[in-house]
Design a protein around this nucleic acid. Sequence first.
DNA 1: TATTCGTGAATCACGGACTG
DNA 2: CAGTCCGTGATTCACGAATA
Length: 292
Amino acid sequence: MQYDKKKYERQIKESRLFELDRETQYTAFKREAYKMVEYLYCYLLAVNKQKYEEYGCEITKIATLCINNFRRDKGDFLHYFNAAWKLEYQHIMGNQTHIERFHGLKVTEEEKRAVSKYIRLATNIDAGISDETLYLKLAAAMEIPVEKVRKLAQMAIVQISSDTYVNEAGEIRIIWDQLAGNISAEASIYEKETIKEILFAINQVFQGLQQRQKPIISDMITIKLCDQLSETQSSQYSFVSKEIMDAWTTTGVLPTQREIAKKYGRDEASISRSVKDFLNKLRKEVRLDGIK
DNA sequence: TATTCGTGAATCACGGACTG
DNA sequence: CAGTCCGTGATTCACGAATA
């Protein structure tokens, strides 16, 4: 069956759903909501059937979540949904069990990281090498099947590319994910702050640290965020460690937490704790921001 | 002096290697 | 193959020290 993207876009746009009051017009709202979920599902299949077909369950989940949290002053609903879906999709793609289940390939974290690293490097350098050639070379160098490299590359690209659906609401969530891992899936974080605000918040909290802490936190935060930061951003904020950033762009190699610990003559546990505390402070800061 | 930091020990998570 | 053992990297906890 062919899905007509335009048609579903139109149906989504023309839906009365968000004109209804979900309390006084409960039944009508429910009815429209069900329809909307269906539209969104069909819409995604129209966008890319083979890619999304197997995720009906997840699509429905996100659609429902979006419908429940969307308010009309948040802009276009479809954008809102797309941003949320992109994140969910990344999440699915990043999930280890998924990798094994759906591609029938066993992949280690190491290989995953390595491939995404090299792909990224290649894009940065832009040697004009074709994807397939690159994959072949990578496969040879890493002594793993080309097929595996190809799959991993796809995943890596999902994570780093800025395709049509990226917007700020999406990216802010990515930054959070990079920083703090799986923060609770409350939808509020999806739209609350802009990237600038969150980077500003990071900066703010960073400035409040004691002097001895700063270089360490700086390195660690940069490690976590370096692939999300643009050049202008990295020069703009003082919490970005230039050293790490340089290492990242030139070699693609990042130090481990342990190496950071050694570098500053600290116990690695100390680093871990400092980072944790920093993130907690950051969380608090952002929450306060959101309330006022 | 109240906070904030640093530390070592214990523990967890995970991948790889070995073994039967 | 499954079961296990080991190394690595990271986290958490309780406590003592440094800082603002």
